[in-house]
Amino acid sequence: MRDKKRYILCRVRTTSDSLTAASLHTAIMNKLCEFYGWSGRAISALKTWQLKDKRDYFILRCSLKGLPYVLFSTSLVTYINHEKVAIDVLRISGTIKSLLS
Protein backbone atom coordinates (compact mmCIF):
# COMPACT_ATOMS: atom_id res chain seq x y z
CA MET A 1 0.00 0.00 0.00
CA ARG A 2 1.16 3.54 -0.75
CA ASP A 3 2.37 5.46 2.32
CA LYS A 4 0.53 8.64 3.28
CA LYS A 5 2.64 11.77 3.22
CA ARG A 6 2.61 15.11 4.95
CA TYR A 7 3.95 18.41 3.65
CA ILE A 8 5.34 20.98 6.10
CA LEU A 9 5.82 24.66 5.28
CA CYS A 10 8.83 25.98 7.19
CA ARG A 11 10.46 29.33 7.60
CA VAL A 12 14.11 29.37 8.56
CA ARG A 13 15.29 32.35 10.57
CA THR A 14 19.00 32.78 10.03
CA THR A 15 21.70 35.40 9.75
CA SER A 16 23.16 33.99 6.50
CA ASP A 17 21.69 34.07 2.98
CA SER A 18 23.44 30.95 1.75
CA LEU A 19 21.10 28.36 3.24
CA THR A 20 20.09 25.66 0.77
CA ALA A 21 17.56 22.84 0.83
CA ALA A 22 20.41 20.31 0.92
CA SER A 23 22.04 21.83 4.01
CA LEU A 24 18.67 21.99 5.77
CA HIS A 25 18.02 18.36 4.87
CA THR A 26 21.41 17.32 6.28
CA ALA A 27 20.88 19.25 9.52
CA ILE A 28 17.43 17.74 10.15
CA MET A 29 18.63 14.23 9.21
CA ASN A 30 21.57 14.53 11.63
CA LYS A 31 19.21 15.39 14.48
CA LEU A 32 16.87 12.56 13.48
CA CYS A 33 19.78 10.12 13.50
CA GLU A 34 20.99 11.42 16.87
CA PHE A 35 17.66 10.69 18.58
CA TYR A 36 16.11 7.83 16.59
CA GLY A 37 18.97 6.26 14.66
CA TRP A 38 18.74 4.83 11.18
CA SER A 39 15.20 3.55 11.68
CA GLY A 40 14.02 7.11 12.41
CA ARG A 41 15.70 8.34 9.23
CA ALA A 42 14.14 5.55 7.19
CA ILE A 43 10.62 5.98 8.65
CA SER A 44 10.57 9.73 8.13
CA ALA A 45 11.57 9.57 4.40
CA LEU A 46 12.36 13.26 4.41
CA LYS A 47 12.67 15.48 1.32
CA THR A 48 13.22 19.22 1.23
CA TRP A 49 12.56 21.95 -1.33
CA GLN A 50 13.27 25.66 -1.24
CA LEU A 51 10.65 28.12 -2.50
CA LYS A 52 11.85 30.10 -5.52
CA ASP A 53 10.36 33.47 -4.65
CA LYS A 54 10.90 33.32 -0.87
CA ARG A 55 14.41 32.01 -0.16
CA ASP A 56 13.91 31.49 3.59
CA TYR A 57 10.79 29.37 3.12
CA PHE A 58 11.11 25.60 2.63
CA ILE A 59 8.76 22.68 2.02
CA LEU A 60 9.49 19.42 3.82
CA ARG A 61 7.87 16.16 2.79
CA CYS A 62 7.76 13.24 5.19
CA SER A 63 5.70 10.13 5.84
CA LEU A 64 2.67 10.44 8.12
CA LYS A 65 4.30 8.02 10.53
CA GLY A 66 7.49 10.07 10.63
CA LEU A 67 5.74 13.44 11.16
CA PRO A 68 6.34 13.63 14.94
CA TYR A 69 10.01 12.74 14.44
CA VAL A 70 10.46 15.43 11.81
CA LEU A 71 8.63 18.08 13.85
CA PHE A 72 10.78 17.28 16.88
CA SER A 73 13.99 17.27 14.85
CA THR A 74 13.23 20.62 13.21
CA SER A 75 12.78 22.17 16.63
CA LEU A 76 16.13 20.83 17.82
CA VAL A 77 18.16 22.30 14.96
CA THR A 78 20.02 25.36 16.25
CA TYR A 79 23.04 25.61 13.93
CA ILE A 80 23.53 25.03 10.20
CA ASN A 81 27.02 25.57 8.73
CA HIS A 82 28.10 27.29 11.98
CA GLU A 83 25.30 29.86 11.60
CA LYS A 84 22.62 30.22 14.24
CA VAL A 85 19.20 29.22 12.88
CA ALA A 86 15.67 28.58 14.07
CA ILE A 87 13.16 26.62 12.02
CA ASP A 88 9.51 27.64 12.36
CA VAL A 89 6.83 25.18 11.30
CA LEU A 90 4.11 27.36 9.78
CA ARG A 91 1.68 24.87 8.30
CA ILE A 92 1.18 21.13 7.86
CA SER A 93 -0.92 19.65 5.07
CA GLY A 94 -1.59 16.51 3.04
CA THR A 95 -1.05 18.20 -0.34
CA ILE A 96 1.29 20.90 -1.62
CA LYS A 97 -1.68 22.71 -3.20
CA SER A 98 -3.46 23.27 0.10
CA LEU A 99 -0.16 23.95 1.85
CA LEU A 100 0.53 26.96 -0.34
CA SER A 101 -3.07 28.22 -0.68
Binding site: R13, S75, T78, V85, A86, D88, V89, I92
Partner: peptide, 17 residues
Protein backbone atom coordinates in the same frame (compact mmCIF):
# COMPACT_ATOMS: atom_id res chain seq x y z
CA UNK B 1 16.11 35.46 22.44
CA UNK B 2 14.20 35.00 19.18
CA UNK B 3 16.34 32.06 18.04
CA UNK B 4 15.18 29.94 20.97
CA UNK B 5 11.48 30.43 20.24
CA UNK B 6 9.52 27.67 18.52
CA UNK B 7 6.01 27.41 17.09
CA UNK B 8 3.26 25.80 19.23
CA UNK B 9 3.23 22.66 17.04
CA UNK B 10 6.95 22.20 17.60
CA UNK B 11 6.65 22.58 21.38
CA UNK B 12 3.78 20.08 21.35
CA UNK B 13 5.89 17.64 19.32
CA UNK B 14 8.03 16.99 22.42
CA UNK B 15 5.26 14.80 23.83
CA UNK B 16 3.78 13.84 20.45
CA UNK B 17 7.04 12.10 19.61
Amino acid sequence: NCFEMRSPRQLASVFFV
